[in-house]
């Protein structure tokens, strides 16, 4: 029981990460129609910039604005220089161009920081654990990540559903042509959305630093799962990104933790471990296939 709760929390923490990345990606994909493979690079840029500043100053909290600023600025420049030329192009061009951005970002990071993973110092208050249940200590820092993710979710919900700019963003995700025909300067909206997505990616990248290493290629590892979240949640839907992010995060974590053990009951241990881990790592893709069978446009697709 305690083990299950612990893995649920781990899944929640992973899900929150996926949500932070998928929220930006789903808006960029849904509103701008751009497949941005380089979203993971923004995640990496945020992680490196924040971790570097935290390392130099010795302060975790100074790393945070650095991560946001670096990812936001990178997003801003990338949108203005590259992405803006891709809106009218087809998806193959977008994939090629943003894939090139991944290679450039990865090599750029290697040139500046080298290939060695870097680590973020954790402030004192995050170093311990709290007992979330009797007999279950859980690292404070992971709880902090979950809390930040949920706060961002609430903030995004209010922004998207309660403000005028949110109304335009929702309308833009549903029907771009109509919004343009009503005279909204959609380019301004695009820059805003891309910048917001970059900020969230940078935030996620910096926060993941202390619990997994900050290294070249970290963005691509999580990007694939993020795209699955976007597709399952429904392109353009923040709510979908939230539900699918948390859901897939939990499912993935639970499968990896428990499937080998379950299979050991019915087959030899070595086979159970191999098959269990294999199936567990396929889990979210199988789930995606199932969801798409029932709801081909994802759980909460924006637009019809």
């Amino acid at each position: 029981m305690i083990l299950i709760v612990e893995q649920l929390l781990n899944g929640l923490q992973y899900g929150v990460m996926l949500f932070l990345l998928a929220a930006g990606l789903t808006l960029i994909f849904g509103i701008m129609g751009v497949i941005n493979l380089a979203h993971g690079s923004l995640f990496m840029v945020g992680a490196y910039a924040g971790t570097y500043v935290a390392g130099v100053t010795g302060s975790f909290w100074l790393g945070l604005p650095a991560a946001l600023l670096a990812a936001g600025m990178t997003g801003f420049v990338v949108e203005a220089v590259v992405i803006r030329r891709l809106y009218a192009r087809d998806h193959l061009d977008q994939v090629l161009a943003t894939f090139a951005l991944i290679l450039i970002a990865n090599q750029g990071i290697v040139l500046v920081f080298g290939r060695q993973p870097v680590f973020t110092p954790l402030p004192e208050i995050f170093s311990g654990s709290v007992e979330v249940l009797p007999g279950l200590p859980y690292p404070i820092y992971r709880l902090f990540i979950i809390a930040v993710g949920l706060l961002v979710a609430v903030g995004l919900y209010l922004l998207i559903n309660r403000t005028r700019v949110g109304m335009l963003v929702r309308a833009g995700a549903t029907n771009r042509d109509m919004v343009r025909a009503l005279g909204v300067d959609i380019r301004g909206l695009y820059t805003l959305v891309f910048g917001l997505g970059a900020l969230l990616a940078g935030l996620a990248g910096y926060m993941i630093g202390p619990i997994s290493s900050v290294q070249v290629g970290m963005g691509e590892q999580i990007l694939l799962a993020t795209f699955v979240v976007v597709v399952v949640g429904g392109v353009g839907s923040i709510k979908g990104a939230f539900v699918a992010g948390i859901g897939l995060g939990v499912v993935d974590t639970l499968l990896r933790a428990f499937l080998p053990g379950v299979l050991r009951g019915v087959m030899p241990p070595s086979d159970a471990d191999a098959i269990g881990l294999g199936v567990a790592s396929m889990g979210i893709y199988l789930l995606m296939a199932l969801v798409l069978l029932v709801r081909p446009r994802g759980l909460f697709a924006a637009g019809a």
Binding site: V165, M167, L168, A171, T174, N175, M178, G183, V184, G303
Partner: peptide
């Protein structure tokens, strides 16, 4: 806007007329 009501569709147009100004928040 398919998932929005008639009223919301019209409101979108009214609001577009106001433009993306500094009061968007």
């Amino acid at each position: 806007l398919e998932e929005a009501t008639c009223r919301e569709n019209i409101a979108m147009a009214v609001q577009a007329r106001a433009g993306l100004n500094f009061r968007i928040w």
